[in-house]
């Protein structure tokens, strides 16, 4: 069996055995549900059959949901010493990182699948733009992947789960808010570059139903970079 899948399976089993998965799913669906249907910019006020409101909420909920998944991924292994066990087995550092990444990504996808009833309900209420909705889901998945890679990196640079959690949220806030804010207030090339790195801009166009290669490549690059950095940090444990 491929070592990546072996690690993914163990991590997923551990999520569900320890109830972490259930608790996080309930919290994710709870927050998304409340803010989509009951309060805030809720769906009934907009007068449009669209999941735009849900997408705008979900990106913020993911900002907290993903770090809670990733915080223990590497930090806990370092603290308990099990990292030594993994790194001396026939697994490369890259397979290890990808295995853990996939476990988190699958859980994010499961969480998103549970919101499909929203889609079905809204589509029965009116004329929903199916293309835009699926695009939005794709955007959420890509953004989730980027969050996971950032979270794994945060988890790899410490052996304390709380520090990993807080760091991951901080990095997330930088990508969600700080870059865009600073970028808009700076003139010229630097300002443009920083604004370009902002998560929300890229997600926004996807949620409107526009799949631009630029946006997809952007999220995939952030993901790849995060995973690569995690791999590098794990490799440095060997020195």
């Amino acid at each position: 069996m491929n070592p990546i899948w072996t690690i993914t399976k163990r991590e997923l089993a551990s999520f569900f055995d320890s109830l972490i998965a259930y608790i996080l799913l309930i919290i994710f669906l709870g927050f998304c549900g409340i803010f989509t249907w009951l309060t805030g910019s809720d769906i009934f006020l907009m007068g449009q059959a669209s999941l735009q409101g849900f997408f705008n909420i979900a990106i913020w909920v993911l900002l907290f949901f993903v770090p809670a998944l990733t915080m223990r991924m590497v930090a806990e292994e370092k603290k308990s010493g099990t990292i030594e066990l993994l790194l001396t087995k026939a697994v490369t550092d890259r397979q290890l990182v990808i295995g853990k990444f996939l476990a988190c990504l699958l859980l994010v996808i499961i969480a998103l699948l549970f919101t499909l009833p929203y889609y079905i309900s809204v589509s029965m209420l009116g004329n929903i733009d199916h293309g835009a909705t699926w695009c939005g889901y794709l955007g959420l998945t890509l953004m989730g992947a980027a969050y996971i890679a950032i979270g794994l990196f945060a988890s790899s640079i410490t052996d304390n789960q709380i520090v990993a959690f807080l760091l991951a949220i901080t990095f997330g806030v930088v990508f969600m808010v700080v870059l865009g804010f600073v970028g808009n207030s700076l003139p010229g090339f630097i300002g443009e570059t920083l604004s370009y790195l902002d998560f929300r801009g890229h997600f926004g166009s996807m949620a409107r139903g526009v799949i631009d290669t630029k946006d997809v490549v952007y999220f995939l690059s952030v993901t790849a970079l995060g995973l690569l950095l995690t791999e590098v940090i794990i490799g440095r444990l060997r020195t």
């Binding site: 163990r10 551990s14 308990s80 099990t82």
Partner: peptide, 16 residues
């Protein structure tokens, strides 16, 4: 690595 079996010093295990 495939040919080596290793019991580390403090015997770390996935206790869950």
């Amino acid at each position: 690595k495939r040919h080596i079996g290793y019991l580390p010093e403090h015997n770390p295990l996935y206790t869950d």
